[in-house]
Measured scan of single mutants.
Amino acid sequence: EPLWIRPDAPSRCTWQLGRPASESPHHHTAPAKSPKILPDILKKIGDTPMVRINKIGKKFGLKCELLAKCEFFNAGGSVKDRISLRMIEDAERDGTLKPGDTIIEPTSGNTGIGLALAAAVRGYRCIIVMPEKMSSEKVDVLRALGAEIVRTPTNARFDSPESHVGVAWRLKNEIPNSHILDQYRNASNPLAHYDTTADEILQQCDGKLDMLVASVGTGGTITGIARKLKEKCPGCRIIGVDPEGSILAEPEELNQTEQTTYEVEGIGYDFIPTVLDRTVVDKWFKSNDEEAFTFARMLIAQEGLLCGGSAGSTVAVAVKAAQELQEGQRCVVILPDSVRNYMTKFLSDRWMLQKGFLKEEDLTEKKPWWWHLRVQELGLSAPLTVLPTITCGHTIEILREKGFDQAPVVDEAGVILGMVTLGNMLSSLLAGKVQPSDQVGKVIYKQFKQIRLTDTLGRLSHILEMDHFALVVHEQIQYHSTGKSSQRQMVFGVVTAIDLLNFVAAQERDQK
């Protein structure tokens, strides 16, 4: 057995438009009618409502009807409940999964919650491996369901041993009777949507819809739904939504950006999952974080739909894509998950301010006199920076000697690579993860907040409520011999709460 199987392995699926269902090699399930009293909570997966979006479509000038398939009504709160249950049931049916076995899954959280929910009911041990950027709410729900959680670096490539995929496979090879159901490759993922989600949409719309818009992560949702719609409703256009920084969209030119990270969760990847059939997507749109969270908040405030950030991405694209539809036509959007997962993220004004998705003037509360002053007023001194090749031991000596707790790590040209902190280095040394002679590049981390000289002290204040420091950066445009230009970030300084307090105190003292 291989040590790991690539999540982007070539698909062996034989589905073709027009091929009889009787030739399918898979076990198919028909939607079942729910009894009045459910035998367990797993029976509350599927049969989610279709809700008309009344205000947002009109606000953006849509002539067509805009409908939302509300997947956050599933038992675990997301569309991923469907595939989690289906993968477990299919693994039980073919004898792969037996009582007492362990389920391991690399996930952005929602599939993990679905699997942990099913594992709690069915009696399996469950280990979820997820990147650090995923919300604390997801972690809390997983723990409450009895799952064990392993976190991995957000910026690790999918084929790196440190990625959530790599760590999951390492655990599988170490733990007896453990299984990775593997949402990236498992046919049960798109089949769950082909058999149930798509049929529900067709039934709820009486077979009449002209466009379907869905955000894409593993691709199982859009693949399964689109294949069924292509068979039953061939005139329906399928629109895929991919965040900026991901590479799922086609044509490839759409993916060209210097951005590699994004805040919206559960969609987009740096590889093409095996289950994603991009041939059934008629057109791709890219979405960005700001519009995703703005539209998610709009869905909550104006439509009462308590959905997550990827739902915002989907609707932001839908109001663009559906401009081509006329009166009497219908566009369906998939709202994948609930706001429950993001209470401390985009639902929080403070978080939105820190990330730059909300401006101070958007909030009406009274601010102190210094709130709208610029960061450049602080008069920061030149920063202490270190090269990635310097040793951890030497870096600790320098920081202690100069009285700093942290320093930016830059390359020879001064471009920011990340940050090192005294606390992080000492804990890594004590844990045996690094040696004093190791290069400081081994303990770089990139989960820090950046701020510009033109940003306000109010925004800085919000950042420092949650973080010990902020890195002050400025952009530099560099022209190359080819005539092309590129933008790079340079370090201007490091600012802490002490710097802000000293500035405010000094100004008030001078005024007296």
Rank of each mutant, 00 (worst) to 15 (best):
A382G: 11
G483P: 15
E253Q: 13
A292M: 02
G441I: 10
P436V: 13
I451E: 02
I398G: 13
R452N: 13
Q435Y: 15
H480F: 11
I272V: 09
E475W: 15
S310F: 02
I398P: 06
L353F: 14
E253F: 08
V241K: 04
H480S: 10
Q406I: 11
L387V: 09
T294F: 13
L457C: 15
V495C: 12
D411G: 09
S287K: 13
E303G: 06
A413Q: 13
D438I: 11
V319C: 15
F503C: 02
E397C: 07
I272L: 07
T279W: 12
E291F: 09
Q435R: 10
Y445S: 09
E360A: 12
V386I: 13
H394P: 12
Q439I: 07
L353E: 11
P388G: 14
K283D: 08
F346G: 02
G309L: 02
Q256M: 08
T344E: 08
L335S: 05
S348K: 12
E365T: 14
G268H: 06
T496Y: 02
S481K: 15
Y262T: 10
F503R: 14
E258N: 14
I239W: 06
T344S: 02
S348C: 04
L471K: 06
E258S: 09
A505F: 13
S437F: 12
Q326F: 08
G393S: 13
L305F: 07
S481E: 15
G308L: 02
G268I: 05
G304T: 04
I398N: 11
G418M: 05
M425T: 13
E377T: 07
G266S: 02
N255L: 06
L500K: 02
G414Q: 15
W351G: 02
N424F: 15
L453V: 11
T294A: 14
K446Q: 15
L353K: 15
K283W: 09
V472M: 12
P336Q: 10
T456H: 11
E258G: 13
K446Y: 14
D455S: 14
K345H: 04
T389Y: 10
A413V: 12
R374A: 15
F271M: 06
S313L: 02
G414H: 02
P336V: 05
Y269A: 06
T482S: 13
L453N: 08
E401A: 15
S486A: 07
W284K: 04
K442R: 13
L501G: 05
V280A: 12
Q435A: 14
Q489N: 02
D270L: 02
L464I: 12
D289A: 04
A413E: 15
L380I: 10
D277F: 02
G403N: 02
S461T: 07
G483S: 12
I498M: 14
M352K: 08
L305N: 02
P336C: 08
Y342D: 06
L399P: 04
D289G: 06
T279A: 11
V241R: 02
Q478A: 10
E361L: 09
P383V: 07
S486G: 10
L453R: 13
K484I: 14
Y269M: 02
N288S: 09
D362G: 11
L453Y: 02
I238T: 15
R400V: 09
G493A: 15
T496F: 12
V333P: 06
L429T: 07
V280R: 11
F293V: 02
D499S: 04
V434D: 14
A497T: 14
K283F: 09
I267L: 02
G423F: 11
H474Q: 15
L457I: 12
Q476V: 08
H372M: 07
Q302W: 12
Q256S: 11
S348A: 10
D277N: 09
K320H: 05
K286A: 02
W284Q: 02
L399R: 02
R330G: 02
Q256F: 10
N341I: 02
D499K: 10
K367D: 06
E250R: 02
L429W: 09
F285C: 07
N424M: 10
K446A: 02
Q256A: 09
A407M: 05
R330N: 07
Q478Y: 15
M466A: 10
T344P: 02
I396C: 10
C392G: 05
F271Y: 05
R374L: 15
T257Q: 02
L254F: 02
Q489P: 15
V319G: 05
S428Q: 15
R400G: 09
V281M: 13
E244L: 02
Q376P: 08
S287L: 09
